[in-house]
């Protein structure tokens, strides 16, 4: 698997700056031009130019340019994600694949995707909930880089239990994008919510604003991180790593513009739900098999 990360606003990868010419049409190119202009006309004109730059670059932040990826047109796609919670067996291959594919911080406190376990014991009204990052589960694994659920319910009378995979919901009205003070995080035309790591100031306002806990602060790079739906893969016609490795097809990904796609079928053939609809975030991650206790 490739490990191309750091996708910026134009969808370029850190390793793949092959098309620098086009990049000049983006915000950075514009800023360079502004910089040159300012240098030449002197300090007096600088304030006026800065005002102009502010106005125009603010527009650029609101409307990111298309990604410079050969053969990919983001106007042609509308990506969607599906999770069939009734199928998930809690094997956590998705979590490990995501960590490896995207070079996610290898600890039990940084995840782009995770799996929750809900267990009702006989005689109890509310479920016990945990995830693989629970200290007991980490102890059972013996490592913060490999994940598993322990056997804590062995011998107990369980009357209902299931797993729920979680991931960034790539919302239609993402509260993280709303609050970002610089526009470093943005919604793409094809539906993904991405972060321009070179522009993020690391204020973590977005981490606070996400109702789903999908974002985290990367202690190595000092900027915010989250799921990209493996944008470097999907723009090449591949599936996200978590979907690719799921042995039971609990995770579904595809193009909502294509009626024959897995995700279109998943959404039309099932009565799907989203998490926390009351927030108004309108997720594009659709669920089957949720329970009233899942939020």
């Amino acid at each position: 698997m490739t490990c191309e990360k750091d996708i910026d606003r134009r969808g370029q990868t850190a390793q793949g700056d092959e098309d620098d010419g086009d990049a000049r049409t983006g915000r950075r190119g514009f800023l360079k031009d502004v910089g040159k202009a300012v240098a030449s006309i002197g300090a007096l004109a600088a304030s006026g130019t800065a005002l102009l730059a502010t106005k125009q670059t603010a527009q650029a932040a609101a409307e990111p340019g298309p990604p410079a990826i050969a053969g990919y047109d983001w106007n042609e796609h509308q990506w969607g994600y599906g999770i069939d919670a009734t199928r998930c067996i809690g094997c956590l291959r998705c979590v490990e694949a995501c960590k490896a594919e995207n070079d996610v911080v290898p600890t039990a406190h940084h995840f782009r995707t995770w799996v929750e376990r809900y267990v009702w014991l006989e005689g109890e009204e509310r479920p016990h909930v945990d995830s693989h990052s629970d200290p007991d589960n980490v102890a059972a694994s013996g490592s913060e880089k490999e994940y598993r659920f322990d056997n804590r319910y062995q011998g107990k009378k369980v009357y209902k239990a299931f797993f729920v995979p979680k991931i960034c919901n790539h919302c239609r009205h993402p509260s993280c994008v709303q609050v970002c003070p610089t526009g470093a995080t943005f919604k793409t035309k094809d539906g993904a919510v991405l972060i321009d790591h070179s522009y993020c100031i690391g204020c973590q306002y977005c981490v606070q604003a996400c109702p789903y806990g999908a974002r985290f602060f990367d202690p190595r790079t000092q900027v915010t991180e989250k799921c990209t739906w493996c944008y470097h893969r999907i723009t090449k016609g591949l599936k996200p790593a978590c979907v690719e490795v799921c042995p039971v097809n609990a995770r579904i990904f595809g193009d909502l513009n294509n009626e024959a796609s897995d995700i279109s079928k998943f959404v039309t053939e099932n009565r799907v739900q989203v998490l926390k609809p009351e927030t108004g975030n309108a997720p594009t991650c659709f669920y089957v098999g949720l329970d009233k206790e899942v939020s």
């Binding site: 915000r27 650029a60 932040a61 003070p181 610089t182 526009g183 522009y199």
Partner: peptide
Amino acid sequence: RAFNAMVTPHLTSAFA
């Protein structure tokens, strides 16, 4: 990069 928020403010942000 703090001045990014002033040079290119994202106007929907309460913090911009």
